[in-house]
């Protein structure tokens, strides 16, 4: 009960931001909240946000864990391209759906192990270590697809990107279930505590007996796995693996989602739920821009302005000022009351 209220308090700023963005979009585009049922699938802009936000939401789950250990994973966009390429070429070679997914997700895990070893064993700074795969990964994906968009039409694989269950697109289920699952695992086991501990003070954590190397490799693997899922969804969505463009710059959106979610880049305390809301905030801005009908030259400017406002409102100074204002008001009220009594 008490913990529930505390958890709600933790994500309150993100929820308020999301609500504000949605209201803003609805003001620009009045039909925004309309949802209808067509061809057995729910149809409407809010559904689009949930669906289109799936890759960034999945990336943000893994990124949250990595950032909580005071790391960062720049390679997730490239890993998306790799896993999409692996899935497309596997299915093109006639492998079954299960084998294809296993290979694609396996590729993501492998990328995670690579990053994890560079960071945890060789002690390379995470931003540099993952930069290597960020640059090389897209080249690997291009080698797999031989430079072309590798198209496929396997109904099972396409279902992951475009299928619906109970009217909702499949990617929505995938990111929500993954988020719930990872959230449960880190909070119901001791993983969350151990990850936060590493992020706050790596050396002290090691001295307290935490297996820091294995744990670091594990979080980069989790990030790789999430990126691989996002990559399969992105490929299935367009029925092809586009090595040049799949997941391009999405690592930055994922980091932004985590930051908007209030997890510090200095590691420590994290909230997967808040990061997921952060991802939805970013997607709401993207979708809102598209719906607004402004010329595309303004896209980046509008997005940057909105995000700047969000981050300024969430900055420690503003939060402190806000709290102080509330306290002053409260004490003033209290004084008035005592004056009257």
């Amino acid at each position: 009960m008490n913990a529930g209220i505390r958890a709600l308090g933790r994500i309150a700023p993100q929820l308020a931001t999301l609500a504000a963005i949605l209201i803003l979009v609805a003001a620009v585009f009045p039909g925004f909240f309309d949802i209808s049922l067509a061809n057995g699938r729910l149809y409407g802009s809010p559904i689009d946000i949930l669906n289109r936000g799936a890759p960034v939401a999945l990336l943000a789950i893994g990124m949250t864990l990595v950032i909580a250990t005071r790391g960062i994973d720049l390679s997730v966009g490239a890993v998306m391209a790799i896993s999409g390429a692996v899935a497309a070429s596997a299915i093109a070679q006639g492998l079954g759906l299960a084998a294809t997914l296993a290979l694609a997700l396996g590729a993501g895990l492998l990328c995670g192990i690579w990053n994890g070893i560079l960071v945890a064993v060789l002690g390379i700074q995470p931003i540099v270590a993952t930069l290597i795969l960020m640059v090389a990964g897209r080249g690997i994906a291009q080698l797999i697809t031989e430079g072309a968009i590798l198209t496929f039409s396997h109904p099972g694989l396409l279902f992951i990107g475009g299928g619906t269950i109970a009217g909702l697109p499949m990617p929505v289920f995938i990111w929500i279930i993954t988020g719930l699952l990872v959230g449960l695992i880190v909070r119901r086991t001791a993983l969350g505590l151990l990850i936060e501990s590493i992020g706050v003070n790596l050396r002290a954590s090691r001295l307290a007996g935490i297996n820091t190397k294995i744990l670091l490799v594990a979080v980069y693997m989790a990030s790789g796995l999430c990126a691989a899922m996002a990559g399969v969804i992105a490929a299935a969505d367009i029925r092809g693996a586009d090595a040049n463009n799949a997941g391009l710059w999405l690592e930055l959106d994922a980091i932004l989602a985590v930051v908007i979610g209030g997890t510090s880049l200095l590691g420590g305390r994290f909230s997967i739920l808040a990061s997921l809301i952060g991802a939805m905030i970013i997607q709401s801005v993207n979708t809102g821009i598209l719906l607004s009908g402004f010329p595309p030259e303004f896209n980046l400017l509008i997005k940057a302005t909105i995000i700047l406002i969000i981050l300024v409102l969430q900055s420690p100074r503003m939060v402190a000022a806000f709290r102080a204002g509330r306290r002053v008001r409260k004490t003033a009220e209290a004084k008035e009351e005592s004056a009257f009594s």
């Binding site: 968009i149 586009d242 463009n245 598209l290 719906l291």
Partner: peptide, 17 residues
């Protein structure tokens, strides 16, 4: 952005709008 993914996403918004 000359890409399939963005082409699809933007078309979705055109249809909604």
């Amino acid at each position: 952005d000359f890409t399939r993914a963005k082409g699809k996403e933007v078309m979705e918004s055109f249809l909604k709008a």
